[in-house]
Design a protein around this nucleic acid. Sequence first.
DNA 1: CTGAAAGCGCTTACAG
DNA 2: CTGAAAGCGCTTACAG
Lengths: 345, 345
Amino acid sequence: MKTLPGTFPGWRGEVKIVTIKEIAKYMDVSVSTVSRALNNHKDINQDTRKKVLEAAENLNYRPNSIAKSLIHNKTYTIGLMVPDIADPFFSSIAVGVEESLTDKGYQIVYGNTNRTRQKEKNFLESVLDRKMDGVIITPDNLDHEIITLIQNLEIPAIFLRRRTPDALNLPFIDVDHYSGAYKAVHHLLSKGHERIGFIGMTKESFISNERLRGFKDCMHQHHIHTSGKEIEIAGRTIESGKHAMQRLFEKNPDITAVFASNDLIAIGALEWLAQYNLSVPGRVSVIGFDNLELSSLYWIQLTTMAQPRKKMGRMAASMLLDLINGSENRESILLEANLIKRRTS
Amino acid sequence: MKTLPGTFPGWRGEVKIVTIKEIAKYMDVSVSTVSRALNNHKDINQDTRKKVLEAAENLNYRPNSIAKSLIHNKTYTIGLMVPDIADPFFSSIAVGVEESLTDKGYQIVYGNTNRTRQKEKNFLESVLDRKMDGVIITPDNLDHEIITLIQNLEIPAIFLRRRTPDALNLPFIDVDHYSGAYKAVHHLLSKGHERIGFIGMTKESFISNERLRGFKDCMHQHHIHTSGKEIEIAGRTIESGKHAMQRLFEKNPDITAVFASNDLIAIGALEWLAQYNLSVPGRVSVIGFDNLELSSLYWIQLTTMAQPRKKMGRMAASMLLDLINGSENRESILLEANLIKRRTS
DNA sequence: CTGAAAGCGCTTACAG
DNA sequence: CTGAAAGCGCTTACAG
């Protein structure tokens, strides 16, 4: 493509940006009148209003939203802090948020944090300085300084896929990991399994631990003893799930089912089982958690617990809107995960 | 979690937002002095500066970026228009864009369009009204009105993963689909294949057609005749790839290799081949395009052409920054796709 | 080096 | 119904 040197097409070119002042001069009325006409204020003669609107149209007038923001102390922008927008989990949520807010005239400013403290802090400060109207956050570093920052934001904030720390009186929206895990294990039990292994993410992960709690409680309530030997820790990758599956199986060669705390780990487990020719679900059943796109592939067909991702995004958005519009309701919400039965169990 | 009724923690509460006016009053100096101190202007006594900074710190002062924007006509926000942020292709790009811009103090406003005209238009208008400093767009509806809108944006704009329409003098950044396809086919030829099928996305897709062009040119330059019978059209899904593979194979039972115009289609083809026990790559080799995360799975191991996604995002961001900073260089860029050899070929 | 004044683009009591 | 004035929070010539 050939490019000509010079300014941008349209830049300081064809369509000059015009202000209400210029409309006023052009029409020989005051800026107040123009403003009133443009905003359909009651104190305006409908005739002059029509003329102003026409002039605005002709001159290609567009209101400067920055100026409006300064006056109304409202920017119609919402901050969305996510650990990683390339993680399909969060990108789905982002779609939900976007769908709900964009129609109401809000725009979304998103910030990837990569789970780093510095980026979380920077984003929150940006939210503050830019006078955003609300914020939806998924922070991973909730130390004192960050908590204070959130507290002083002065705007409605919602924790998404996180639980609000005690020090903060803010609502959250999350999946009920505990009951989801309980359901998953119950499904395995109902299929007749008793020797069931669990693979967690990391020792520190709240989500992983909630799912472990669901696993244990369900087992115990069905009078099945857990020794701890059937619990293994993986990590965040398919590869880590594969290794964890190996360790789990070596320690418990008699297990007939595995509850992996997320789909990536479950897929790693499936991979190891496939490599060692252990048939699924014949020899070992597998259930995951998340219902990633991957999991429905022909070769995988993983039974798993689906988290309502888009719905979470939409609900967070509408909760936030309510708060922005003055609602006092700050009830947190736990959404249920649903069993998706497929081949592996 | 229990919530107390009332205002937000911090809302009109603990930390009042303070303005330079209040700092000025508090220190008994003029706002001009405060402003100069805060901005480290040269005409300021270092002593008073220090005191002002201290006061600002104590009063928890934060500059109002809206007010700054109004004066400087610069908002430090960039628009990012994507068809669908939940599409891993675009979310990777978004990460690249974010990484490059966020350090420079820019924030990214993103807009999902779902490829609808109305949403593209709304987003562009929002870019205009909100005085964003630049925009990166992936539009699908380039009719006259939209083109005019882009033209009148008055700010630097970059087409991402699209080619700029003739009417617009704006740079684009895209992958060289033609040469990528050429390389893919060349790879198959080098493996000894001659009867190669092609599965495209849709008849109208520019990208698909470029890849088809690469297919044909490579075949012809190696003196292999293409009759058209070995060309099949799928769609945007795995399912469509599966059906297309079936049609392709029924028409051309003697083919030994397939170039699918994207990975989703290739995976659909693999699925069909697996169902009919046609071994890959023994009986049929398959190559895709995109290098999705899916494609590297144990069960799939798809040979494919990788598009440098994050890099595209980063390059678009840095190009845009250059333009914002006054660069005259509006050279478009075509990035090369790279062959990722895996099991299926 | 400091302050008073004008201004960014808009809104909105206030007076007429 | 209309206009002049003050103001949103900040910056920046201009004068001293």
